[in-house]
């Protein structure tokens, strides 16, 4: 299963990025292969409009099953996320990536 965490960096101890659409990085953990892949999403800064759906589309390309973020996707991004069938967990905005993943595993994050 692929789990995407919105992050401000590319390490397990990086801070989470509470934003979905304008997140700086994707931190994607595959819990079957135990491999991490990251994606630099910072080009999204240049998008004046529609950052949310664009990031959601990018996420869909990675074939993600679970999204862990801070505030949760907004309306337009949410439309895309729901189309892809990805489960969304929120409330991890002020954690590190590791803390957010652990909180998700323990069932401490709210499903949106």
């Amino acid at each position: 299963m692929k789990i995407l965490l919105t992050a401000k960096g590319t390490e397990w101890d990086s801070q989470m990025d509470p934003r979905f659409g304008r997140t700086e990085f994707f931190f994607i953990y595959n819990d079957e292969t135990e491999k991490v892949e990251t994606f630099d999403n910072r080009a999204i800064e240049n998008e004046a409009h529609g950052a949310g759906p664009k990031t959601a589309q990018k996420m869909a390309e990675f074939g993600v099953n679970v999204l862990i973020t801070g505030n949760g996707p907004g309306g337009n991004a949410d439309t895309v996320v729901r189309q892809t069938g990805t489960k969304v967990f929120v409330g991890a905005g002020s954690m590190t990536v590791k803390e957010a993943y652990d909180a998700y595993k323990k069932g401490d994050l709210k499903e949106a």
């Binding site: 409009h49 529609g50 950052a51 759906p53 589309q57 869909a60 337009n76 439309t79």
Partner: peptide, 19 residues
Amino acid sequence: CNFNAVMKLGEMILVFPEL
């Protein structure tokens, strides 16, 4: 589209009217 208002997702084209 300069505004990300039209998007191809899998086998679908999504339109975001507000964008």
